[in-house]
Simulated scan of single mutants.
Amino acid sequence: MNRLKDFIEWKVFGVCTYLGEKWGVATSTIRMYFIYLTFLTMGSPILFYLFFAFWMNIKQYIWSARRNPIKWL
C-alpha cells in the first residue's frame, strides 16, 4: 500500500508539484483548485493536466538526450 501512495504522489501529482515550484505556490493549494475546477467545469482541466504531464515527460527525455548524446547511438 505504501508503494501505491509513493507512486501516486510522485507520478500522478507531478504536474501540480511542478507548477507549485515554478509559481511559488503550495502544491496542496494547486491541487485543491484543480479539483474544484474539475468539478465545476465537468472535467475539462483533466485534458490540460494530461497534456502538461505528457509535455513534462517529453521535455525531460529531450534534456537527458542532450546531456548524453552517446545514448542515441
Rank of each mutant, 00 (worst) to 15 (best):
M1H: 08
M1W: 04
M1G: 07
R3E: 13
L4N: 13
D6S: 12
I8S: 12
E9W: 10
W10S: 09
W10C: 06
K11V: 07
K11C: 02
F13T: 02
G14S: 10
G14D: 03
V15D: 01
V15E: 00
T17F: 02
L19W: 01
G20T: 01
G20I: 00
E21V: 02
K22W: 04
W23E: 05
W23V: 04
W23D: 04
G24R: 03
G24M: 03
A26P: 05
T27P: 00
T27K: 15
S28H: 07
T29L: 11
I30E: 01
I30R: 00
I30M: 00
R31A: 01
R31H: 00
M32P: 00
Y33D: 01
Y33C: 04
I35L: 04
Y36S: 10
L37I: 02
F39Q: 07
L40Y: 11
L40P: 05
L40N: 05
M42I: 13
M42N: 11
G43F: 14
S44E: 11
S44I: 15
P45E: 09
P45H: 07
I46W: 08
L47C: 12
F48E: 06
Y49T: 02
Y49D: 07
F51R: 10
F51A: 13
F51N: 07
F52M: 07
A53R: 15
A53C: 02
A53D: 08
A53G: 12
A53Q: 14
F54R: 15
M56L: 14
N57T: 08
N57C: 06
I58M: 06
Q60I: 06
Y61P: 01
W63A: 13
S64A: 06
S64H: 08
S64K: 08
S64L: 06
A65N: 11
A65I: 09
A65W: 12
R66P: 03
R66I: 13
R66S: 15
R67L: 11
N68A: 11
I70K: 09
I70P: 03
K71V: 05
K71C: 03
